[in-house]
Write a protein that binds this DNA or RNA. Structure first.
Lengths: 149, 149
DNA sequence: GTGTCAAACGAGAATTATTATAAAATTATT
DNA sequence: AATAATTTTATAATAATTCTCGTTTGACAC
C-alpha cells in the first residue's frame, strides 16, 4: 500500500504535480476499494469519512488527473455515471468487465483474451490499437446458481 | 427502407406500442444516417427539419423505446453523450467500434470476432453472455496515411 | 362517423453529473 | 519568513437527460 502510494507520488512529481493530502486520501480510498467500480460520488463520500473537509470538485479533479496519468481508468457502463478503476500496475492493457443484468454486479477479467482479435483488427482494418474496452452483459455465476435452487 | 419501417411497426405493435408520426420520423432519420453515431440532440435536430413540431423529450422517449426493443443500441464513447446506433437486422450480436483518438472518427466492425473469447468466458467464468460491447481506441487508417505523407 | 380511453405528445421545469470560477489556503523554494 | 505557483473550497454554471402535467392523438367500439 505505502509503496504503491510512493510510486504514484513519484509519478505525479515527474510531471510536476503534487501529492497533496486530498489527493493522497483519494488514492487511499481507491486502493482500499480496488475490487469495486466507484463513481466520483462514491469516492467523495468515502474520502469524506477520513477527510471531512474535502470538496467534491477536488475529488473530480484528482480522478481526472489520475486518469490522465493512467493510474485509473474512467469507465462508463451506460448508467449515466463515470466509474473509476485502478489499473493493475504494469498492465499493458485495460481489463475487461462482466456486468450482470440481473443483480448489477461487475466482475473483472484480468486476462487479455484479445490478442488474436487485435491482430486481426490491426491487419484487416489498418487500425493501430492503443487501448480497448470490452464489456460483456449477461448473467453472472451467482444469479445462475440462485436459479437452479 | 419502407420494408424496414414496416417491420419495425410490426415489432412495436406486437408489444402494443404505436408507430406514431413522431416515432416514424425518428426512425426515418436513424435509417437515413445508419452509418453515423448520432446523439439524441443530433437526432432531434435532424427530425426537426422534417417535423418541426416535435419535442426533444419525445425524441428521447422514442430512442429509449427503440433501445428496449433492441432496434437501436445505446452506446457511450465516454464523451458524456449517449449515441444511438441502428442494429443490423437479424444480427445476433452488437457490432464493434474503432474510435480514432486523433480525428475522433468512429468506424464499425460488423464481423463477430469474439466467438472464441466468448466461449472462454462462458466456460471459465460461468457467465451467460447476452450481449457485448467492444471498442478499440487507437489511430485509424486515415490518420496513419496522413502521417506518412 | 362519433364517443371513449389509454397512450403519446409538447413545453418547460426539475434533476443529475460534471465543470468552471474566483477568492483563500497551501506548498515548495528562495 | 516572503514569494510565486499550484491547489483547494464553495458556489455558480452548464449540459444531458428525465419528469410533470395539461393537451392531443390514435385505435377501437358503437
Amino acid at each position: 500500500m505505502e509503496q504503491r502510494i510512493e510510486r504514484i507520488k513519484k509519478q505525479l512529481h515527474s510531471q510536476s504535480y503534487k501529492l497533496t493530502p486530498q489527493r493522497e486520501a483519494t488514492v487511499r480510498v481507491l486502493l482500499e476499494h480496488e475490487e469495486d467500480h466507484l463513481s466520483a460520488e462514491n469516492v467523495y463520500m468515502l474520502v469524506k469519512e477520513k477527510s471531512p473537509e474535502i470538496g467534491l470538485a477536488t475529488v473530480y479533479r484528482t480522478l481526472e488527473l489520475l486518469s490522465e496519468l493512467k493510474v485509473v481508468d474512467k469507465i462508463n457502463f451506460g448508467d449515466g455515471v463515470s466509474r473509476y478503476d485502478l489499473r493493475q500496475e504494469g498492465a499493458a492493457h485495460f481489463h475487461h468487465h462482466l456486468v450482470c443484468i440481473e443483480c448489477g454486479s461487475v466482475d473483472e477479467i484480468q486476462e487479455d483474451l484479445l490478442e488474436d482479435v487485435e491482430k486481426v483488427v490491426e491487419k484487416e482494418w489498418n487500425f493501430y490499437i492503443k487501448d480497448h474496452r470490452l464489456t460483456f452483459h449477461g448473467i453472472c455465476y451467482r444469479c445462475r446458481d440462485k436459479k437452479e435452487e
